[in-house]
Nucleic acid binder design. Structure first.
Lengths: 321, 321
DNA sequence: TTGTAAGCGTTATCAG
DNA sequence: CTGATAACGCTTACAA
């Protein structure tokens, strides 16, 4: 490995001169700088990150933590983050799994964006207390080193239920997400409120898990109880897809016997027959805003909590009753 | 920040004893070890990665480089890698963008898995020459510090064309991937060979780009030239989906006028109407094999080039002529 | 069994 | 403008 020491030797200067020259300090003659850069290039010099980090206590790398890489993998969200970070001189890496949490306290990362239920609130607060900077996308957590960038779940759930009501439905199901999911909790709460506010309605909740299997199970139960058109708000699209699958070889038709709306507006939903109604938001904007706030936090210029707005996307999976 | 020096002070021992104790060395009494661990816990000690790396010249982190995070394609691949790495004591981070290439030469990563056309062969060879360990998934590159884990593109393309022929098709199109793509090049080459080998056939190639837009454009051209049933091998599923979209509001039907097979068997393809025929392979196996070989390379136990096998998935997008 | 000390590659302070 | 030199936190001979 070639270090600044080697460069110093070859260029006939001291290592501090080399360091200054490499960092473009005006303290060094243009001439010597040029020479040093030439030698560096010739020797294929690459700075050692560990050494620099040890001194400067920063890596210019931030981590985004996901529960899993499987499924939709949040492509646009990550892309939005990456572009924003890149613009501001930071690199982004995507991490998953509890083992990799260590990277934060050990100083590999200058900060983290968390969308990962494998982090407990306690763990995050611990890191925040030690001075690490965090943005959370999946919980409410108040601390001076943490900022929240959250989806407007309540608005989305309200839009969804109101849409079903507007289409004349009187028998409503909600298929929920896993216990303890922040998004699910918020959506459910708003759905209940909207139902209550709109007077006497038939209403039931079916516990789900945000995956296809639980959507299919919910479909089964709805068929068992069938006594006329029912409307279902699946708290995410994945479960709605499970419902489509389960109904495929039955006499029940989506948009006719069972009306379905999801949440997230994932890509597949536009390809389903009939097209799935859903709640849409810009993943890339979500990512960009999260990145922006994290960098503000790191650089100590007033970061603020943010809300990501959502909108209704209609689809033939819900028809007028 | 609390360092081993602080622990030493609090425990009334020297820093080397602390270091030994923390690393579970048998050189230290069980008693002192216990005490030191207690103090460490009490002070919330976390080892500093930069310092350790500077000494040990390893991070136990490996990077997977992708061209982009967009598209839902790589979830299982990454999951396969992660699980394999985790089993062997390494962490995985996902990187994208040329700026983040620095992490490899600067010593942030113990190795890299590359599926990213933004790396040139020259750049990779440079790193390999400097001693960095690499696994490439998207090119052929021979070097003692590089191992290849490649899809069996040729088998897949052969299966696809043979399937179309078996179904009685005589007019064949291939929609290609971008210039310079290794996968596209291999698939195209095998497709051509199979066509040639099977005697006189109407055959044409349409340049594509592995995205939906180019699939749609290809569909347009095929309709313009239409003079009877045609069969199309899209060199990936994404373009096949573009083709579905483009044909949606035309009188041409997939599986009737235009028969289509893709490559990759991505999730959406099972939800298309009619179901898309494709070439399938196990993404998670691909990832796991890549991870396994990289670690072998790093640990110096004979790593070997590997091939990932593929299989045909039939679908109603191709019907007997 | 424990302590001393050198050194990993940088940065940054202080003299010259 | 340039050069010694002391850190940064940790590992690891070697000494005691």
């Amino acid at each position: 490995m070639v270090s600044i020491k080697d460069i110093a030797k070859h260029a006939g200067v001291s290592i501090s001169t080399v360091s200054y020259a490499l960092n473009g300090s005006p303290k060094v003659t243009e001439e010597t700088t040029k020479k040093i850069l030439a030698v560096a290039k010739e020797l294929n010099y690459v700075p050692n990150a560990a050494a620099r980090t040890l001194k400067k206590r920063e890596t210019k790398i931030i981590g985004a933590f996901l529960t899993s890489f499987e499924g939709a993998f949040y492509g646009d969200l990550l892309q939005g983050m990456k572009e924003e970070m890149s613009k501001r001189g930071y690199d982004l890496v995507i991490c998953s799994g509890t083992k990799s949490h260590r990277m934060l306290p050990e100083g590999f990362l200058d900060g983290a964006i968390v969308l990962d239920r494998m982090f407990t609130d306690e763990e995050l607060l611990l890191y925040a207390n030690r001075g690490h900077k965090l943005v959370v996308l999946d919980r409410e957590l108040r601390h001076s080193n943490i900022v929240q960038v959250l989806l407007d779940n309540k608005a989305g759930a309200t839009f969804a239920i109101e849409y079903l009501l507007r289409m004349g439905h009187k028998k409503l199901y909600v298929v929920t997400g896993p216990k303890g999911s922040f998004d699910s909790g918020q959506r459910l709460q708003a759905a209940r409120q909207t139902v209550e506010r709109n007077g006497p309605l038939w209403y039931a909740e079916i516990p789900g898990n945000f995956n296809k299997a639980s959507g299919a199970a919910a479909a089964q139960r709805i068929m068992d109880e069938y006594d006329g058109p029912a409307a279902v708000f699946c708290l995410n699209d994945e479960m709605a897809i499970g419902m489509y699958n389960a109904l495929k070889d039955t006499p029940y038709r989506i948009g006719e016997h069972i009306h379905v709306i999801g949440f997230d507006h994932i890509e597949i939903s536009d390809y389903l027959q009939p097209r799935l109604a859903s709640i849409d938001y810009s993943e890339s904007r979500w990512g960009a805003v999260a990145a922006e706030q994290l960098i503000k936090l790191i650089e100590g210029v007033g970061a603020e909590h943010e809300r990501i707005y959502v909108s209704l996307v209609e689809g033939e999976s819900v028809k007028q009753r």
